[in-house]
Amino acid sequence: MNIVVCIKQVPDTTDVKIDRNTNTLIRSGVKSIINPYDTHAIELGLQIREKLGGKVVVISMGPPQVIDSLKEAVSMGVDDVILLSDRAFAGADTLATSYTLAEAIKSIGNVDLVICGKQAIDGDTAQVGPGIAEHLNTPHTTYVNELCNINSANITVKRMIEGGYEKVEMDLPALITVVKEVNEVRFPSIRGILRSREIDVPIWTSKDLNIDFTKIGLDGSPTQVVSVSTPQINTQTEIFTGNAKEQVHKLLEALNEQKIF
């Protein structure tokens, strides 16, 4: 079973703070991490390999610092990693990103299963996975929370939907996107960490791919961000003082006065 897992390096958004004076993100000191959903995708890839044999290759598109995240994947035990990095890829929206990743997957060749995280926590679009599947002309299933069965010909998964789940079978090759419930992510192993420190991460540029240059990067992106703003905040807060009882009383009074209901 040849498995490709697509990951994204993201800022740990739980750490992101806004500078209220300049209305910008304070990024200094914010760690870069593997998108949490993608770590579950890696774990699932490793589990399938442990069961059926084969290879797990992790790919990512982004600037050179993404090498750190790919090394982290190596420390978890994946076989190979590839970074797609090129100025020509910059500015890609989900369409151009999924096209580029799909072309890389074609270049790897003979891939049976592609696994992505449900969505990235910085963009939250959830669009790249299905987009890759479309460009690869393979079936896909999103929001997978359980792998029921997999063999050389097909895969059966549970997909979370509103108010329950669907059980879906697909012919391979196929693509799935996974939610956190699908598994518990392993820790890296010491041998994996040692290997990750030695490995040279191969970098593929646009020239290494059989790619249509009008479909990548900013030029290949139909959508464009035209403005960015910071959500407004309510600055009129009434903070009550006193001990617990006094505060509770003041709250009830205030609500009463306002005739809230």
């Binding site: 392993r186 890296p188 192993s189 010491i190």
Partner: peptide
């Protein structure tokens, strides 16, 4: 977990 992380090998 310790076993899978190679701790027993140290």
């Amino acid at each position: 977990i310790l076993a899978k992380s190679d701790i027993f090998r140290v």
